[in-house]
Structure formats: structure tokens, C-alpha cells
């Protein structure tokens, strides 16, 4: 069983052309990336604003209720509505992206909101005390302090989108889901399992890339990883030894 899956994955012919793995991977990344971008543009500013002002917390609650919507069912409903209103591929692409955006908004919103609202009040008060305006406090203090939680929202949204984008294949859109749907229809186990492995690998890879970006962008003082702690300790030791000398 594992050997047939391995053979499917390593067959060069399976990686080429319109239905090849390379093309399907790119398609999958494209829908996922577009959906994540749109969802972030909607959810992150709203979440940060709710966290900053403390007003409109009900929006978070409503968005969280959206998590209960079954994506596949929503996809069919949205696709049925669009099929007679859009032409060509967009009749299936637009519903896919709408469903993925709706899926990604709750974790993004929650991350931005809790990140901003849980900023240490002392830091916020100090910023106001320095004469910063509300907008400056949000942009220069609260959002940078909230970055770790914002990133955790982005990462969980990205994982969910990549895993769920497979359902787009049910309405004829490309991406890695094709291997699951076509493999099942043709009773081709190696293709199905290979597709599932590829989706998993892609999700982990994207999560890894986002983790690296997080490392590079989050201010050093907020990092909680062992690497940064080790660096801090090393820095402290260096300072001490300099004093001693």
C-alpha cells in the first residue's frame, strides 16, 4: 500500500502538465493565498480596532458562530447561486474563495482582537503619557505588541484554508483536492493517499514559512522562543562580563 502511494508520488509523469502535481500545487497555493489575503484585509483591521476601542465585541462573537458553518454545504449553496450569474471558471472560483474567506475570518479576527486588547496596560498608558494620539498608540505600541497573537491567528487561518481548499474540487476547481475526488471516483487509492499527503505537507510547509516570518518580524522583546531566550541570556552575560572587566 505504502509503496503504491510512494510510486504515485515519485512518478515524474505525475508532476507534469495541466493535471500534474506541480500545477495542482500552484493552483492550491493561489486560491489559498488569495483567500488568506482577502480575509486578512477584512479581519485584521476590524479585530485590531475592536481591541483598541473595546467596542463592538459582539462582532467577534458573531464571527465565532460562523465557525459552525459546514464549508462544503456552504460551497454548494454559493456555487448554485453564482452558476447562472458568472461566466466560465469564475462561476466556480468565486464561490470557492468566498467560502475560504468566511472560514479564515474567525481565527484572524480573534487573533487581532485578543492581541490588541491584551496589551499590557502599562505600555499603553506610557504611550499615552508620552503624548501619543490614539491612532499612534494603536499603530506603534498595540499592534507591534499584539504581533505574536496576530501571527497565531494568521497561521491557524492558513492551515484551515489549505486543508479545506480541497473541497473546491467538488465543484470542478483545480488544486490538490482533485486527487482526492478523482482518486475516489476511479477507486485509485494511491492517487487519493498521495493527494492527502501532499495537502498535509503543503500545510506544514506553509506553517513553517509563516513561523520563520514571525521570527523575523516580531520585536525581540516579545519573542518567547528558546532561541531568543538564549540570545537574551547571552547578551545579559556579555553585559555582565563587560561590567566585571
Amino acid at each position: 500500500m505504502l509503496t503504491s502511494v510512494w510510486r504515485w508520488l515519485t512518478d515524474g509523469g505525475h508532476w507534469q502538465g495541466e493535471t500534474g502535481i506541480t500545477h495542482r500545487l500552484l493552483e492550491h497555493l493561489q486560491y489559498s493565498g488569495e483567500s488568506l489575503l482577502i480575509a486578512a484585509l477584512i479581519a485584521l483591521p476590524i479585530g485590531a480596532l475592536i481591541g483598541h476601542t473595546g467596542k463592538g465585541k459582539w462582532i467577534i462573537a458573531v464571527a465565532n458562530a460562523f465557525r459552525a458553518i459546514p464549508s462544503l454545504g456552504l460551497l454548494f449553496v454559493v456555487a448554485m447561486w453564482f452558476v447562472s450569474r458568472l461566466t466560465g471558471d469564475s462561476a466556480y472560483l468565486v464561490p470557492t474563495i468566498i467560502v475560504l474567506v468566511i472560514l479564515a475570518i474567525p481565527p484572524l479576527l480573534a487573533g487581532a482582537y485578543s492581541g490588541v486588547s491584551e496589551v499590557d496596560p502599562a505600555a499603553r498608558d506610557a504611550a499615552y503619557g508620552m503624548g501619543m494620539s490614539g491612532r499612534q498608540v494603536l499603530a506603534n505600541v498595540e499592534v507591534p505588541c499584539a504581533l505574536p497573537l496576530i501571527f497565531s491567528g494568521v497561521r491557524s487561518a492558513a492551515l484551515q484554508i489549505i486543508a479545506t481548499a480541497t473541497i473546491a474540487a467538488a465543484i470542478s476547481v483545480g488544486g490538490l483536492g482533485r486527487y482526492l475526488i478523482d482518486g475516489l471516483a476511479n477507486s485509485d487509492y494511491a492517487q487519493m493517499a498521495g493527494g492527502a499527503i501532499l495537502v498535509t505537507a503543503l500545510a506544514l510547509l506553509v506553517d513553517g514559512v509563516l513561523a520563520v516570518i514571525q521570527q523575523l518580524t516580531v520585536p525581540g522583546g516579545l519573542r518567547t522562543t528558546s532561541v531568543s531566550r538564549r540570545k537574551q541570556r547571552a547578551a545579559a552575560a556579555a553585559v555582565e562580563s563587560a561590567h566585571a572587566a
Binding site: 452558476v83 447562472s84 461566466t87 466560465g88 462561476a91 466556480y92 465543484i171 475526488i181 471516483a185
Partner: peptide, 19 residues
């Protein structure tokens, strides 16, 4: 030129709406 994998009435809808 391309193949659209669909099921049931979705096939009829796609034909009817020129997808």
C-alpha cells in the same frame, strides 16, 4: 480544451449556463 468534474444537476447547470 478542459474538463469540468461535476455531479448530477451541477452538470446540467454548467451546460445551461455555458460554463
Amino acid at each position: 480544451k478542459s474538463f469540468r468534474a461535476l455531479q448530477g444537476t451541477a452538470i446540467v447547470q454548467a451546460l445551461k449556463n455555458d460554463q
